[in-house]
Each structure stands twice: as C-alpha cells, then as structure tokens.
Design a protein around this nucleic acid. Structure first.
Lengths: 220, 220
DNA sequence: AAACTCTTGCCATCTAGTGAAATACGTATT
DNA sequence: AATACGTATTTCACTAGATGGCAAGAGTTT
C-alpha cells in the first residue's frame, strides 16, 4: 500500500473512533483527544453527524450514530467466515459446554472477535464480539501470528483475563492462517487433561472449517 | 445543524458505505457508485484501508475492514437502550414464544434493528440486527413516526416481508418516542385474537421500559 | 500480438479545508 | 446584577492539501 493518504479523512475517522470508544463525548474532549483545534473538530464532527455516523444528544454530547451500528452489523453478518464456521462452533459447544469464539486479525496489532456461541454452563464468558485483544498476549493472537506448536493448538492461562483459560487453533486457507477458533473457559473449570482433550477437539473443528476453505492438502 | 460540511470526508464515508453495502467491490465499481474519478476514489479508499475501515483482499476487491466491525459492535453494546430493554424483551419471548426486536430511528428515513431476542419456536424470524427498514411500511417505523393508535400498538401484516406479521409499541422518554419494541411473527402462526393479546403484552412491556427512562407521568 | 478494461502514479492547479481570533452561550461566583 | 470562566460556535484570510486529467502499468480477453 502506497503512502498517499488524505489527512482530512484520517482526522474525521480518528474522531469517529474517539466517539465510539468513549460512547459519549463533548466537542472539547473530542478535539483534545484528536489533538485538533475545536473549530476543526466541530466541522468534522458536523460532517460525521450529517452522514449519520455520530449523533448529538440533548446534552450536546456526541454519541455513535445508527450508521456505524448498521454498517458494522451488516459487515459482520456478511463475513463468510462466520457462516462457514457456524456449524463447527455449535458442535464444539455441544461437545464441551464451553463458549466458542471466532477471531481474525484486527487493526494495529490486535485480534478481533467476530463471532461467538455461548457455552451451556451457568457461569460462562461474557460476549466479547467486536472486541479486540492484543495479538501478543492471547491464545487467538498467537494463532493468528502463526505461532502454533505441533500439537495444533495454543493455550494461554491468565492472559488477557486472569481467571480465564483460552485455547485456540488455526483456521487455514491455502496454508495461510486466516482466523482462530478458540474456547474461552473459566479457569476453575478446567483441569490439565481437559486442556488436552479440548485442544484436540478444537484443532479438529478448525480443521473441518479449513477444509471448507480450499485448504491445500499437505502430503504426510 | 448548520450547513458547514467537509466534502472530502463525505466522499470517503460514501465510499465506506458502498463497500459495506456491497460486501466486496472493485475500485472501478466504488468510483462509479460514488460518482468520483477513479484516482480520487483510489486515494480515499487507500485512506480508509490505512485506518482499517476497509481491506483489500487477494483478488484486489475492497471489503469491510475490522475497524468498522469493531466500532459497530462496540457502539451497539454501549447502547444503553439495549441493556435497559433486555429484561422486558426476554420476558416477552417467554410469554409469547415469538421473536422480539428493539429498533430506533436510523439514517435517511429508516428504522434500524439494534437488538433481538429469538423466539422459542422451531420456525422463527431470521436475525435482522443491524438491518434497516423503511419507516413508512413497517410497524416499528410507524411507531417511531409517533403514529400510534389509542390501543397503544401498531400492526402491520404483509409489510416488509409478505409472510410476516409485525406488532410494535413505543418506548418513550419524556413523552418522546425514542425506540420501538416489536414482535415479528410468521403470519401462519397468528390469529386475530393473538394480535390483540400480543399487542397488549407488547404495549405493557414497552411501558415498563419507558418507566425506566424518566418518562413523564401524564395525568389521567 | 492486439485490443480492451481496470488500476496506479504523477503533478500543475486551485479551491476546499484550516485555525486563530472573536463572539455567543450557559453556569457559577461575587 | 455584574463578573468570571469554560465550552461551543462563527468568521474569513490564507495556503496547502485535495483534486482529477492523463499517461503508464497491469491484467484479461479475443
């Protein structure tokens, strides 16, 4: 990708992200967070507002607009990986009872959860669809980084969340890791032999998804 | 809202919407759809790509990027109306067995579904969260337009979808309609007296949500 | 190989975007 | 009531950032 870019657009997108991250923000806050003069930020926010990406509430705070929700949900539902993984994810939940996530590489050294099927236990992982996690400290992140041991899955205990154990396996398309399938389990519920068993089930499920993606067969 | 706006940003946002609507689009298609010269569209798409809002796949097509998914999901989960309505929506599903939606006014004369709880029947409505519907032809749209009869709910049979009956009721904050709660039911499963019963249950549930929003008490 | 279509890079041009300063507004204090 | 303060909004001279036509490159089809 060449260097050419458009400063004005970058500034507007930066303001959009600030509003979405904060949930609710004043003009002054947006301007400071984006390091822009107030009048510049106002004009750009006005443009975002006119296009429906942000809205101004009765208190004068800027909030995310319906357009960002619409395009986000639309893009998520059109993501073919989500539909291709649905069946395997549901089977995994049925086998393990634990919550299953699908994640892909996100922006700026992150992984982003793009689908989840909740486990069947009373105590399970809170829905994190749309959230990002650092590539460097998560099981899914390690998988997306192609850092997968011979066992075929990665285990991270006490990574992002202290009381959670995450196991992840790679989904490949033509030998390239394109997504990670992971189990996210409260640590109190997982013993050493569980990890081995779950890991294998996970790697198998990821294999099934991969085979639907035109994965090259590597000769044994 | 004043007229001042930023053409460059509008153009970029328009391209973003085109990519998300199409799911996958070539540079040429984006340029034509946005009525821009190809070199202008290329530069703006490059900017969107650099910020993670779109990505370019191996075939050279532009697709939604992780950033739009992330910000969309984040904004949706931060929407207080969704959490405030959760309990009433779940109770409605438990009482009726049908799918329940929460919608708000969207962009450009639309309503947008922002939350859904699936019904318990085998045959139920496909998840439409994030989708928009026209204000003018839907039950939710009529409610958001403040066009609610004295019964307290709106019924639309064969509106957006030919084989679906939708019943909607208003959620108010300080007498102003801020959202619509609706039941979406396959028409074969709904009889005349069902509509009356469901409508009342719906209006009551919407009332409960409204009371949590600082609704003014109108003296009887 | 030729023709066609799509993508990408370049750069002279100019207008669209900028931001400092002034003004307006709302709230709190004296 | 007057003043102070912080935030939001407006104004407009200025310039640099965005533009888009055109040529070249790349890919596909005949």
């Amino acid at each position: 990708m060449a260097e050419s870019s458009t400063r004005t657009v970058e500034r507007a997108l930066s303001l959009l992200a600030i509003v979405c991250d904060q949930g609710s923000a004043t003009l002054g806050h947006c301007a400071r967070a984006a390091d822009l003069p107030a009048s510049t930020a106002l004009r750009l926010l006005r443009t975002l507002e006119g296009s429906g990406f942000v809205r101004k509430d009765d208190d004068g705070n800027y909030r995310p607009g319906s357009r960002i929700i619409q395009l986000g949900a639309q893009s998520l539902s059109n993501e073919s990986l989500v539909s291709l993984s649905r069946e395997s994810m549901e089977a995994l939940v049925a086998e393990t009872g634990e919550s299953v996530y699908l994640s892909v590489e996100g922006h700026g050294g992150t992984a982003i959860y793009i689908a989840m099927i909740e486990g069947t236990h009373s105590v399970r992982h809170t829905n994190w669809v749309g959230r990002t996690i650092p590539l460097s400290e998560s099981a899914a992140g390690r998988v997306l980084h192609n850092d997968v041991p011979a066992a075929g899955y990665v285990v991270v205990e006490r990574g992002i969340e202290a009381d959670v154990t995450a196991i992840a396996a790679p989904i490949r398309s033509e030998t390239k890791v394109v997504a990670a399938l992971s189990l996210v389990i409260p640590s109190y519920r997982v013993a050493e032999h569980d990890i081995d068993r779950y890991g294998h089930q996970l790697a198998l499920a990821a294999e099934v998804v991969s085979s639907g993606l035109g994965r090259s067969t590597i000769s044994a």
